[in-house]
Design a protein around this nucleic acid. Structure first.
Lengths: 207, 207
DNA sequence: GGTCGCTTGTGACCGCGTGCACAAGGCCGG
DNA sequence: CCGGCCTTGTGCACGCGGTCACAAGCGACC
């Protein structure tokens, strides 16, 4: 369920404002989706609301946290400490909600030993041991494209269960490993595509 | 067509290696998708391949560039120069293929005037004029969540056609403006969700 | 020039996600 | 205790995207 985190964030905000109950309609508004979809998603995870009233916010937060696995800690390792890796290492949003960065790894010997926050950059050769010792569950790849597949292979071999890939290339992993990718250049190109086409549509309209 | 950028990147790589023609199967392999999908996507944009041979790489690169709107320049403004904004401003992948960062904007007076690369951070109050003067087409929001909607409204009012939102919140824009979002915390939560569920499935199997 | 092999282009199906619309059911006021 | 209101939960139909499979067509080799 790819929308659960959206609901989660909206629910957290409401809980902070000590809102007691929420209707599917309100939640849909905050998450930017359809109300029926909200109800279906929530019914799927079995947490029941009360008809005529809505959902209990606190209860729902607990249910969704549990479903998302945010009740336990997820040790994260970042591989590749260029600009992006640095920003990720410093990013506070990462540390919240159980995602703890426990290792920074880079292949460049010049970077090894550099401190960022509480952590020291370690060599990529130690990746296997690092993942094993610190029970790293999620690997973040922020290397150049050329290194991404190799890093992914190492992460998988070391036993990581999930990978978040920022490198601008296709990475393949075994089925039992989850992979998500974030590609900034592609996002821009998609926007450019739509804008290009809006412009063409306008041109045609003006003829 | 959300997959076009994937093909584009693969094609660029092949062109660099002076590959003459490519089959849908090869392209599918490189882009990590199904071959029939590749053919449908390409046929949709009318650029014909030759049966029995494949597609001419150079020709296809030109067609896809045109379709993606990469033949013209897209001026980009980044709003919010925290860690992420800094990384984006420095990110080389952005500058490639016609996306040129022409302005850095921040609401914090302490940051205004700071230089990053060739650019100087400017105050958010000037956003309207900046967008107009430099014909900014794409706005990148890298502010805290609380400021995102306000920045988006300003960008839209100033005439931006597309927005890429990195702030962890839902932003609403008029229909005629394209909006895409990248949310790092949500990506991690989705991974955690899948990993959590794999773990439960395994537990059940072990009983 | 004919045949064979290869690859494109596309028609047809399938499955999933989406959204509507409504019945089921709790709450409150009278 | 009953009726009306409100919101959930879900059956159902629709549409879109993905995939398969095959006919059409091009080139190469004999």
């Amino acid at each position: 369920m790819v929308r659960l985190p959206l609901y989660y964030r909206a629910l957290i905000e409401m809980a902070d404002r000590t809102v007691g109950t929420v209707s599917s309609e309100q939640l849909a508004e905050l998450a930017g989706v359809n109300a029926a979809k909200v109800r279906k998603d929530l019914s799927y995870l079995g947490s029941y609301g009360t008809r005529g009233v809505g959902y209990d916010v606190d209860h729902l937060v607990r249910e969704v946290s549990r479903e998302l696995g945010l009740t336990r800690d997820w040790p994260v390792a970042i591989v590749g400490l260029g600009n992006l890796g640095h920003a990720l290492a410093d990013y506070r949003g990462f540390g919240e909600r159980g995602f703890q960065i426990v290792a920074l790894v880079d292949a460049d010997p010049a970077k090894v030993g550099e401190r960022i926050g509480d952590l020291t950059i370690e060599p990529v050769e130690d990746l296997d041991q690092i993942v094993g010792d610190r029970r790293v569950a999620i690997g973040v790849i922020a290397t150049p494209a050329a290194a991404a597949q190799d890093v992914a292979d190492r992460l998988v071999a070391a036993g990581v269960g999930s990978i978040l890939n920022f490198a601008p290339t296709v990475v393949v992993v075994p089925d039992e490993v989850s992979l998500r990718k974030v590609d900034l250049a592609i996002e821009l190109q998609i926007l450019s595509f739509y804008q290009q086409h809006r412009r063409r549509a306008l041109d045609r309209a003006h003829v």
